[in-house]
């Protein structure tokens, strides 16, 4: 089994992601987008970065590449697909997940550690947690403000598809703890298939012990499927 970490021009978290997954004993390899999705891919990680220089809108150019059609097909078959940061922007632009990530409320790029609360455990990414668990994860984005119209937002809540919400260290969801102005503090959402998800925080930057925190490891273990590591 191999998790394909898709690399576009401007991706910059692809190596980190492979290293973090390898650390967890999950086989992963970088795949250049033009080479297509490998047939043996058992998961897809859309990594962070600045694909295509964020031209037009962050993630939209990568979302219109042929490999993403293959990713959407794989996602519909239930293969785990996770978009992180720029990968989350790509996922929303590709329609893998609803909503959109756009300019931070501050209009600035923000690179800091934040707290997020696990809002559902009904996903491979969060089944290793309890609902309400608080994680400390890094963010690094200029366009991470989650937006969704009222109907979409209500549907996400009804279907229990909000994965993570920004919160304070005690797990209280407050406006002060919302780093980018995301609607309802949403930091990550689940797709039509619960095996598809996107999130702005970087679990791969919180997996290796020498990086000062390993709260992201359990999220990435979602790629481990039935392995004993979950």
């Amino acid at each position: 089994m191999t998790v394909a970490v898709l690399q576009f021009g401007g991706s910059n978290c692809d190596r980190d992601s492979v290293r973090a997954l390898s650390h967890l004993g999950i086989d992963a390899e970088r795949v250049w987008y033009e080479n297509g999705l490998p047939e043996n891919a058992t998961g897809v990680l859309l990594p962070g970065g600045f694909s295509y220089g964020d031209y037009l809108r962050a993630g939209v150019m990568a979302a219109r590449t042929p490999v993403i059609d293959a990713v959407c097909e794989a996602a519909s078959e239930g293969i785990p697909v996770l978009g992180v940061c720029n990968g989350a922007q790509i996922g929303c632009e590709a329609g893998l997940t609803p909503g959109a990530f756009t300019v931070n409320r501050s209009a600035r790029f923000q690179c800091e550690r934040v707290h997020v609360r696990v809002e559902t455990t009904e996903s491979p990414w969060t089944r290793g947690y309890d609902e309400g668990d608080v994680l400390e994860l890094p963010i690094a984005h200029g366009e991470g403000r989650f937006e969704a119209d009222d109907d979409t937002h209500e549907r996400l809540i009804e279907d229990d598809r909000i994965l993570l919400r920004y919160c304070d260290a005690e797990g209280v969801v407050t406006d002060d703890a919302n780093p980018n102005g995301s609607r309802d503090n949403v930091a990550g959402v689940v797709g039509e298939k619960r095996t598809t998800a996107v999130m702005m925080p970087h679990p791969e930057r919180a997996t290796l012990p020498d990086l000062g925190g390993t709260d992201g490891a359990v999220l990435l273990r979602g790629f481990g499927a039935t392995s004993a590591t979950v």
């Binding site: 037009l56 809108r57 939209v60 219109r64 929303c92 632009e93 609803p98 909503g99 959109a100 756009t102 937006e147 969704a148 119209d149 979409t152």
Partner: peptide, 9 residues
């Protein structure tokens, strides 16, 4: 529809 605009926003 397909590229220039994002109907969500």
């Amino acid at each position: 529809e397909r590229l220039l605009a994002n109907p969500t926003i």
